[in-house]
């Protein structure tokens, strides 16, 4: 807790409500969500489907509009933060344009934001290096594996050097071996860039392995049931998952999920 107070606040939500209007009446996607995320934190949102974790991430990105409460990003409204290029967003699917090369895809946000041409090329080379895809710039998406495509989409989100990286189940569609490798690489990338990362997942090991802070959510209405500050050290080799601390944190996450009656079938 103390650690969080020391850091500058990047994302702050107070009593946040968000309801969708549907044909069957309003659906409460988020209810009374209060959370503070400090600079450089790696925050995971975990919970079953319908718990509002993705909705919360989308609200931070100004892709959804809250119906109540307060939400600020870098001290601004989410809308202003988006225009100030505060965050890069990584979706579940890589969503690369099939008609653009990998370099062309990474360049897309830079073109839209109007970076000078030479600067575009420099940044593309730099972020492709960062995600270990140097030399693949001229390939087309279909020539790459699913894991490489998702790395390219992370490079695309990093290209304009936003402070915040929002990731919505980015590795959900990948197999476990690839996912483990990408988790490891993501941690390295996070350590090197010092970005604040918001990460939605439904995998307990993934959440515990990656995060400095784990936010456990439960559905109907979507709300936070537990916030766990991870006791794990910054340096995390893959076999840390067999350590006692790891298992304890994982256990607490599971308890939190159960307390939210989240696994009722």
């Amino acid at each position: 807790m103390k650690d969080t107070l020391d850091r500058a606040t990047v994302i702050e939500a107070k009593g946040l409500d968000l309801a969708f209007q549907t044909a069957d009446g309003p659906v409460q996607a988020l209810k009374d969500v209060t959370l503070t995320v400090g600079r450089g934190e790696f925050v995971s949102f975990i919970g079953p489907s319908g718990c509002g974790k993705t909705t919360f991430l989308r609200a931070i990105a100004a892709l959804e509009t809250p119906t109540g409460g307060m939400l600020s990003v870098n001290g601004m409204t989410p809308d202003e933060a988006r225009r100030a290029r505060a965050y890069g967003y990584v979706f579940q699917a890589a969503g690369l344009y099939p008609w653009r090369t990998i370099a062309g895809n990474v360049k897309l946000p830079l073109e839209i934001m109007g970076f000078p041409r030479a600067e575009q090329d420099r940044r593309v080379a730099q972020v492709l290096e960062l995600v270990d895809l140097a030399g693949f710039g001229k390939k087309f998406p279909w020539q790459l594996s699913g894991g490489m495509q998702q790395r390219a989409s992370i490079a695309r989100a990093l290209a304009f050097d936003a402070d915040i990286l929002l990731m919505d189940e980015p590795f959900g569609a990948l197999d476990e071996i690839v996912r483990d490798r990408l988790n490891e690489e993501l941690l390295k990338l996070w350590a090197r860039t010092g970005k604040t990362i918001g990460f939605v997942t439904h995998s307990i090991p993934e959440a515990v392995y990656l995060s400095t802070k784990i936010v456990v959510m439960s559905p109907r209405p979507g709300r936070i049931t537990d916030v766990i500050d991870s006791p794990l050290p910054q340096e995390r080799p893959l076999d840390i998952r067999d350590s006692r601390e790891f298992i304890e944190v994982a256990h607490r996450v599971r308890e939190g999920l159960r307390a939210g009656h989240s696994y009722e079938v």
Binding site: R58, A61, A62, L63, R82, R83, R85, Y87, G88, Y89, F91, Q92, A93, G95, Y97, W99, L108, P109, E111, I112, M113
Partner: peptide, 26 residues
């Protein structure tokens, strides 16, 4: 998802058309 991606870049409607809709329609 692809339209949301362009929204996160604050892309204009013209940019969305020329960068995404037009090539996707080929």
């Amino acid at each position: 998802m692809q339209l949301d991606l362009l929204r996160t870049y604050s892309a204009s409607r013209a940019q969305t058309f020329w960068k995404l809709r037009f090539p996707a329609s080929m």
